[in-house]
Design a binder for these strands. Structure first.
Lengths: 155, 155
DNA sequence: CGCTATAACTTAACACGTTAATGATGCTGC
DNA sequence: GCAGCATCATTAACGTGTTAAGTTATAGCG
């Protein structure tokens, strides 16, 4: 499929299709392809789904932490919270002890929404797990965490 | 860092932070973080950089194939080609034998541009390779390809 | 040849990614 | 107490992701 040359010789650009950015991007695309029909059917974006799931798992938190955990930038989150509030899936309030912070939480409607979508989502993930195989999936999970750790510039 | 429970039990949602979509997203983010200053300094986006690199590696091709290889959707590519043409980094022309197709190619200026940025880019990739380690990088590369293959619905 | 279907792009509309700048609040030291 | 700096959130501007609809061109078929 691809020439079996070394990934990178240190002097020239690597084959674009074999670089980490594209491999990670296309792998992610292959995974998301399976979830998209479900999310679309429930009129929610992938990013919004991440946000409300994080809220369900960890409860109310400020916007910065939510953005960090859901892998979403602050400006995007600001826009999304407005949309999710309009649908009454989340609620936000000012932190009383720190007026700069905005605390976001899941509403009862939000919890119900997740409960509605969760079974299908879990089924899709189980199908992916079955296709990929437990061994490969486990190794990938560990290696991806290791990759992040190796690249994290501990400031 | 994360509770050492099984990835997924088949009945409930997995821990969001341990799911493939987020792992792949955050790993990619960790990698791109290192390239962003360079790309920004040359006033080019990550996606545009992918597009012109694919053109350099494989030469003139039609838009569909280019979009596929660079992992970019057709509507995005249409917009990008306009921008890249305005900067005279790429050129496009109609396919003479199939009037529907648009053939995209790198200009001389485009080649020069890549030659200018390539050394820094290669240095950054080499640094990443050094941090991550050859073994982990090689295994990840293979596993990510395997993941894509496993999930590809061969239509 | 003409009709229909399909394919390759293009456009449009809306959401998110990314960077920079602004506003508001908190904090620190004097 | 207040001036100056840091932090959190928001806004703005532009590029890309995503889906749907629209254009133009080709292919198939009677």
């Amino acid at each position: 499929m691809v020439a079996p040359e070394s990934i990178h010789d240190g002097f020239e650009l690597a084959n674009t299709r074999r670089t980490l950015p594209i491999l990670l991007l296309s792998a992610r695309e292959a995974v998301m392809e399976h979830f998209r029909p479900l999310l679309h059917a429930h009129d929610i974006t992938e990013q919004q789904w991440r946000v409300i799931r994080v809220l369900q798992e960890r409860g109310e938190m400020d916007a910065s932490r939510l953005a960090d955990l859901a892998c979403i930038l602050a400006p995007s989150l600001t826009r999304m919270i407005k949309a999710l509030e309009a649908r009454k899936l989340v609620a936000s309030r000012r932190d009383e002890t720190d007026g700069r912070r905005s605390l976001i939480s899941l509403t009862e409607k939000g919890r119900t929404f997740i409960a509605t979508v969760a079974p299908s989502s879990a089924r899709i993930y189980a199908d992916i797990e079955a296709r990929v195989g437990t061994e490969l999936l486990q190794r990938l999970t560990d290696d991806l965490v290791a990759l992040r750790t190796a690249l994290d510039d501990e400031l």
